[in-house]
Design a binder for these strands. Structure first.
Lengths: 358, 358
DNA sequence: CCTCCCGATGTTGACGTCAACATCCCGGAG
DNA sequence: CTCCGGGATGTTGACGTCAACATCGGGAGG
């Protein structure tokens, strides 16, 4: 029906039947017909094989060009079991740290010839992440990157067998290969910085209790104060948003004991600062504020915010590197953990308390 | 070869050959063997076909579970020509508008059962976007979303034939279906707001000249001033970053004629405000500032910034909607344009000039 | 002038899935 | 009792690609 009723001469059949296929583009067979070679030769050209006569290659390339051919990924994937694709599961994609990490992963992936398939889960619960992984997995990706699976407990997370995985969360050490920022050191340094300035103690505006990084920061902050023999005020909690920082800031502004606040991220710090201004307090004269992350805007807030810098770009690169070592080398790196350093960037939002005491 | 030489009783052949395949998981044939049915029946179960006896379905599901089977996407894609995947090309992924739009697209895609493959191009030039599209295209995606192809000229962009596409850039109207924020109205309203407050004219801190949205804002700003018979100061330029806003702000602070500045985005506005503070100027008492985008932090800057709000989430949804109408319906919507409204959010960074004059 | 060898090219089959068609079995009608 | 209909299930082939093997043709060496 589609081929002419005269099957005599194969070469003659390269008449003007422009591939009766519906939506899919020209196939390798179409190119072969136009170029007057076999499909295999076309395949050799498209995979960059060496043993094709230059003249033939030329003809094939011309035919490809004419037809607008490009290889069918699905068929290739089916044929050789690899997809050239990495799955990426993230939670709140538009958040600063997330989007910068995603950008870095995508960049690193492209540099290695991989594309990235992105899934934004509704919640970082084990169930949601597990479901997302299942959806991505088995055959449609070569590996999986999970960014900040905050509440997912390592035990509850079920991943497809044999699927290379990396997680950007230190709690997964021992369960999955992980890359994480050194939040512990960052928090210690930030608290010590404030104590060094003469503050008697440091208040803490933490992230949500179901966030692992937030908990690490709270625990480290508390631990440091205890270790330094300072009073440990009750931490207050936000949800990472500037608004929550503002709301908690209004409460902290009432408390005359507060002279220094460590915030779990920069957005909350910004909201906090605004609340302090509205309450007639000045930063850092009345209250010192430290943020966390060093988002691009931090430097240009007023006052420029002292903050703990995380290198999201490096985290993304390391994630990709660790993943590809597994994908390519079949290495099993279950207990590998890469810690990316953080550092305190001192700007203008921290200073000595008005009336320094012990 | 893989079936036993005794073809008598099909059911007996479910012996213990545990799939000699290497890296790929169990296939439909493995499940069929374990369940004692044919591959087609397994297929029917996995595609949710109706005509399978409940008892048989049960047996198949149990076999799937036992083997950890899940269907091979590549084979499915190859079989029925659809991928359940949308390609997404973006430029600077971590930038506010971009990441929020990406998030919305990913969300909308998931709601429709699609996954998203992401490519972050180095530059928004036609060449780079064309290359990215080619890489994604032909067969590995069902449609393509291009976000803010800022410098790509419509004419220079070459896309695979028959590939459904949407672009979030109004300049592509007539070339490709497009979704864009109503920047023209937003800019008009912002300028008028400042004139209404009594400012003689409005300065403009624009984005880079190779950005289409930036140019639209500059042109509209100029046009409005001209229409209102006001002097048109030379616009200054930033690169969208807070730092560039800060640098230009230091220059504008020197100019006593400056009483109101419209900034092309919020980050630059934030940098500008800091520069003004450092120069001893107050906002809005000495100089009024308006931003663009309404990023989440805007409300919590000091002072809270008056800005033109863009609904990135809605843009993302509309992009997806427009794309899926093409993917599913085979509609051709080449000259469709969807304009998403913007609105001015008045906060505390704008006010009457100190010495109001006509 | 005949062989052998080697590089270029062609042919075959398999990857996993599923639509289309074929077959089988059972109960009910004639 | 046979025949028919229809639902459940099995068989076949094709999607596009590429590795493995087959073939072909010409030049070098004997």
């Amino acid at each position: 029906m589609m081929t002419s009723p005269c099957p005599t001469i194969g070469r003659m059949s390269s008449d003007l039947v422009p591939s009766p296929r519906g939506r899919t583009g020209p196939s390798i067979a179409d190119v072969a017909r136009v170029a007057g070679v076999s499909a295999q030769t076309v395949s050799r050209v498209s995979t960059g094989a060496d043993n094709v006569r230059p003249e033939t290659r030329e003809r094939v390339l011309a035919a490809m060009d004419e037809l607008g051919y490009s290889p069918n990924h699905a068929a290739r994937a089916l044929r050789n079991g690899s997809f050239g694709t990495i799955g990426l599961i993230a939670h709140r994609l538009a958040r600063t740290g997330e989007s910068r990490t995603v950008e870095a992963v995508v960049e690193a992936a492209r540099a290695e010839g991989y594309t990235v398939t992105l899934v934004d889960v509704q919640s970082p619960s084990s169930d949601d992440v597990t479901a997302a992984a299942a959806r991505l997995s088995h055959q449609s990706i070569d590996g999986l990157v999970i960014i900040r699976a905050e509440t997912a407990t390592p035990a509850g997370l079920v991943l497809p067998p044999r699927m290379p995985v990396v997680v950007s969360d230190s709690r997964f050490v021992g369960h999955h290969p992980a890359v994480a920022a050194d939040q512990v050191t960052g928090t210690h340094v930030a608290v010590q910085h404030l104590l060094d300035l003469g503050h008697r103690t440091v208040h803490h505006l933490g992230g949500p209790v179901d966030s692992a990084p937030a908990e690490i920061r709270v625990d480290t902050w508390r631990e440091h104060l205890v270790g330094a023999g300072r009073p440990v005020p009750e931490p207050v909690r936000g949800d990472w948003s500037a608004r929550s920082g503002y709301e908690q800031g209004r409460r902290l502004a009432q408390d005359p004991d507060v002279t220094a606040v460590l915030c779990a991220n920069d957005e909350m710090a910004a909201g906090l600062v605004r609340a302090l201004y509205e309450a007639g307090l000045r930063v850092p004269d009345d209250i010192s504020v430290v943020g966390f992350d060093d988002i691009p805007l931090t430097e240009f807030l007023w006052p420029p915010l002292t903050t703990v810098q995380q290198d999201f770009h490096l985290i993304g690169q390391q994630l990709m590197d660790l993943l590809l070592r597994q994908v390519r080398g079949r290495e099993t790196l279950t207990d590998t953990r890469i810690v990316v350093p953080t550092r305190l960037v001192v700007r203008a939002s921290t200073g000595a308390p008005r009336a320094p005491r012990a």
